[in-house]
């Protein structure tokens, strides 16, 4: 008997109905966005004109399919490029941060820990403008003082990467530190006693233990980077990632079913990645179900 559950059948039914409704609410816009990718119509709207895959594969205007739309594909490529670099960078820094906060004591640790969390509670738009302002300031000064043109500090992919990294490093740090906290340090001592060097212990004992968390953190960072809009919007140059390209399309052309096709692709892609991250984290034991 579950004491936490409602005790009368009517209440239990009502509760279940509420939760079901909630999940329908969660699914509705995604389902709507997906379904109209397959409608043979110029608009993502009813009536249903029959099933088609043209919005994916057609190579002729006006029904130019996603896989022949150069700008969307370019955006997809940029998103991948940014996402991979950002997630590698955030996992690397997240790992060193995890060791810093879990294994070392130093004066001011509490303050630095709070500073480490702060990027999560700064609105993305503000992170974007502050990095834009700072980078432009350096670029302007360099130009005025030494006649140097530092183009990578102007809006563009480099700044987008820095902007996303600035808050993703917090997320990866938290995920990796949570796992490092569960590590049994006697394992390291045993390896040291058996004559292994510190570096060898790190690479054969500690890092393999952290690997599931590092992979999961990397996947999360990649997905968040891929879907980020606010920070990216402020830092983007002429090469825009997919979300910005899609936004431009909505703003200029209005909604067209090719965007539904992109949505389907993104839903499938991120669903698969999320599943991988869950499986990777679950693999070792049931010890780390949380987080």
């Amino acid at each position: 008997m579950n004491v936490a559950a409602p005790q009368t059948p009517a209440l239990r039914f009502a509760y279940r109905a509420y939760v079901t409704l909630f999940f329908l609410y969660l699914a509705a816009p995604l389902a709507a966005a997906s379904v109209f990718a397959f409608n043979a119509s110029m608009f993502p709207a009813l009536p249903w004109n029959g099933f088609t895959l043209d919005w994916f594969f057609s190579d002729t205007e006006p029904m130019l399919g996603l896989f022949h739309d150069r700008r969307l594909l370019q955006g997809l490529g940029n998103s991948f490029y940014i996402g991979i670099i950002v997630s590698l960078l955030s996992v690397a820094v997240g790992t060193t941060n995890a060791f810093l906060f879990e294994r070392h004591d130093f004066p001011g640790k509490q303050v630095l820990y709070v500073l480490m969390i702060v990027p999560l509670v700064i609105p993305g738009v503000i992170l974007g403008i502050s990095i834009l302002v700072f980078a432009s300031f350096i670029a302007n000064e360099a130009r005025a003082a030494m006649d140097l043109r530092i183009n990578f500090l102007r809006p563009g992919l480099f700044l987008v990467i820095l902007g996303q990294f600035s808050f993703l490093a917090t997320i990866t740090t938290l995920v990796i530190a949570a796992r490092l906290r569960k590590f049994d340090t006697t394992l390291e001592e045993a390896a040291l006693n058996l004559g292994a060097s510190r570096a060898r212990v790190l690479f054969t004992v500690t890092l393999p233990f952290l690997r599931p968390a590092m992979i999961a953190a990397g996947v999360v960072a990649f997905l968040v980077s891929f879907e980020n809009f606010n920070t990216t919007l402020m830092l983007v140059g002429s090469d825009s990632p997919l979300t910005i390209t899609m936004y431009d399309r909505i703003a200029k052309v209005g909604s067209t079913p090719v965007l539904n096709a992109v949505s389907v692709l993104l839903i499938i892609g991120s669903g698969a990645l999320a599943l991988i991250s869950v499986l990777v984290q679950r693999e070792p034991k049931r010890a780390d179900v949380e987080s």
Binding site: L26, A45, S263
Partner: peptide
């Protein structure tokens, strides 16, 4: 997991889904 799935989809896709549902020629109106 079901709860998390929309989290992995871009803000833009979610907003776009609502547009498809709610606008004048949208699903709800239809």
């Amino acid at each position: 997991l079901l709860c998390l799935i929309p989290l992995w989809v871009s803000d833009l896709v979610r907003a776009f889904g609502w547009i498809v549902l709610l606008r004048e020629t949208g699903v709800v109106s239809g």
